[in-house]
Each structure stands twice: as structure tokens, then as C-alpha cells.
């Protein structure tokens, strides 16, 4: 039984929510407007479409070239994509088997292992940046895709393990038992029964790993020094360096780079919240 609200109260609630929403959207609207309007100044306006629309910033970002004339945006897009893709593959592959073991087997060290994964998830790779830098330097992996993939997997694996374990737990064991009776091996049960059933969770996990790697900035900034090996976030930061700031190009680049991942985020956010909080509660 719920009481009917008074119209005044409803109006007040709406007014409050609209104010907060406007404040929230304001910076984003400014960036959209900036990317479409000429010049370098942020105009104070709520309307994301400027009176005079120009695509000059977009064209400048997309056609950036280095001194030798190679196409920088394409190169950096390729770097970002390859790094994110390889991180996803490595992360999901390693995590799915581990998550299966944590979900289905009872073995000594299971709780301890889960705890390690949780603790690691809480401490970001930024903390490990210095040893990672020294190690990558010694291994000659600075400025390479391989080095970055290795580092990003560190952050991806624990989260993937938690997400997938949570999902595997919901798949009834009877299905595997049926497969067992039909003569499937342990690996067969995992490969032919559990994995196909958890396609949605695998997709979420993979997309999330992809998103994290795509969005990572500081490790890439630290480990990459060559313009041609930059990922997109590093490229964006360099548009607004200390000496010269090109906010128009930054705004256009930011929209180009973040649109796909923001779309991904909206697809994923429900699953993401349950994954994050479940991991937290179980610790």
C-alpha cells in the first residue's frame, strides 16, 4: 500500500533531479559542443550543438601524421585495439579455467586462492608500476604491445575470475552429471556443457576486460615513449600537454575514443554492478 504523493512534492522531486542531471550532463555537453565548434575556448552553454558546426577538429584528429608521414591515428587505433583484444583473450582464457575450478572443485587452498584474487583486485597495477617498469626494462619489453598486454592482464584476471565464478555457481551441476553419464570427460563437461551455457557471462567478462584495457592511461603513458606505439589515451593526453593545449582536438578525440566504450558500458553496467558488489561481499 503506497500513499499518493502530493503534486507539490512530486514537482519538487523532479526539480531536484533535473537540476542534478543538468549539472551532471553539463561538462559532457560542453565537450560535445567544443568538438563541433571552432577555436580553443569552452563556451558556456547547455546546448551541445553550436550555432556554427564545424568538423575541423575531427578531421585534424583523424588525419594526424608524424614526421615520416605515417598515419598516426590509424597506428594508435591499431595499438589500442590489439592491446585490448589480446588482454581480453588472455584474461578470459586464464580466468575461465580458474573460475571453473573455484566453482566446482573443493580443494585445499581454495579459500586462500579466492582471497588472493580479491586482494589483488583491490590493489591496482599502479602500485606495481615501478617494479613492472624495471622488469619490462630488463626484459626489453618497454614500448611494446606484449609488455602492455602482460601488465593489463594483471588487472583483468582477478576480476574475470570473480565474474565467471559467480556465474558458474548458478549453472546446475545436474547438467554436468548428465554429461558425465553420457561419457563426457572432466574437460568435456567444462568445454561442451559449462562454457556454452555461460556465453552471456563470458561476453560480459570479455567486454569488460576490453573496456578496461582500452581506457587505461597511466601505465601506457609510462611504458610507451614512441609516438607510433602510443595507445589512444596517451595520444589524447598529448593534445592537452603543458606547453600547448588544443582543447578542440582533445574534445573531438575524446568523443571518438570514448563513444564505443561508453556504449559498451551501458550494455554492461547491470552485470558490472552485481559483479563488483558480489566480489566485495564474499571477501
Amino acid at each position: 500500500m503506497i500513499r499518493r504523493r502530493s503534486p507539490v512534492r512530486t514537482a519538487l522531486v523532479h526539480a531536484l533531479l533535473i537540476t542534478v542531471t543538468v549539472v551532471t550532463l553539463f561538462p559532457v555537453a560542453l565537450v560535445v559542443r567544443k568538438s563541433l565548434s571552432p577555436g580553443n575556448e569552452f563556451e558556456l552553454s547547455l546546448n551541445p550543438i553550436p550555432p556554427k558546426v564545424t568538423t575541423e577538429h575531427y578531421r585534424a584528429v583523424l588525419s594526424a601524421r608524424d614526421f615520416s608521414g605515417s598515419w598516426l591515428f590509424g597506428r594508435q587505433l591499431y595499438n589500442s585495439f590489439v592491446v585490448a583484444l589480446l588482454t581480453t583473450i588472455l584474461g578470459v582464457f586464464l580466468a575461465s579455467t580458474a573460475a571453473y575450478a573455484f566453482s566446482r572443485f573443493r580443494f585445499p587452498g581454495r579459500r586462500f586462492g579466492m582471497m588472493i584474487f580479491l586482494v589483488v583486485q583491490m590493489f591496482p597495477a599502479t602500485l606495481l608500476m615501478i617494479p613492472l617498469y624495471v622488469i619490462l626494462d630488463k626484459l626489453g619489453l618497454l614500448d611494446t604491445v606484449a609488455g602492455l598486454v602482460l601488465v593489463y592482464s594483471t588487472t583483468a584476471i582477478p576480476f574475470c575470475v570473480f565474474m565467471l565464478k559467480g556465474y558458474f555457481d548458478t549453472i546446475p551441476r545436474e547438467l554436468e552429471e548428465a554429461a558425465w553419464i553420457d561419457g563426457a570427460s572432466r574437460f568435456g563437461m567444462f568445454w561442451r556443457v559449462v562454457l556454452p551455457l555461460s556465453k552471456p557471462a563470458l561476453a560480459v567478462t570479455a567486454l569488460f576486460s576490453f573496456m578496461t584495457a582500452w581506457n587505461e592511461y597511466i601505465l601506457a603513458e609510462t611504458f610507451l615513449s614512441n609516438e607510433a606505439s602510443y595507445t589512444l589515451p596517451v595520444m589524447l593526453k598529448h593534445y592537452v600537454g603543458d606547453k600547448s593545449a588544443n582543447w578542440g582536438a582533445f574534445a573531438a578525440g575524446a568523443i571518438l575514443v570514448s563513444m564505443p566504450v561508453m556504449a559498451l558500458f551501458y550494455m554492461l553496467q547491470k552485470a558490472l554492478v552485481s559483479g563488483l558488489t558480489a566480489g566485495g561481499v564474499k571477501g
Binding site: T24, V31, N215, Y217, V261, Q269
Partner: peptide, 20 residues
């Protein structure tokens, strides 16, 4: 609309606000 800030990659948020 309100979860939009979470969707924006946080380095972009930071740079955007630096500009603001």
C-alpha cells in the same frame, strides 16, 4: 543519464575537468 559520468573513461573526465 545520471550514470553517464561512470561511463566516461576516467582519464577523459580528468582532462575534461582540467579544461573546465
Amino acid at each position: 543519464l545520471l550514470i553517464l559520468p561512470w561511463a566516461v573513461p576516467n582519464y577523459i573526465t580528468a582532462l575534461m575537468w582540467k579544461g573546465m
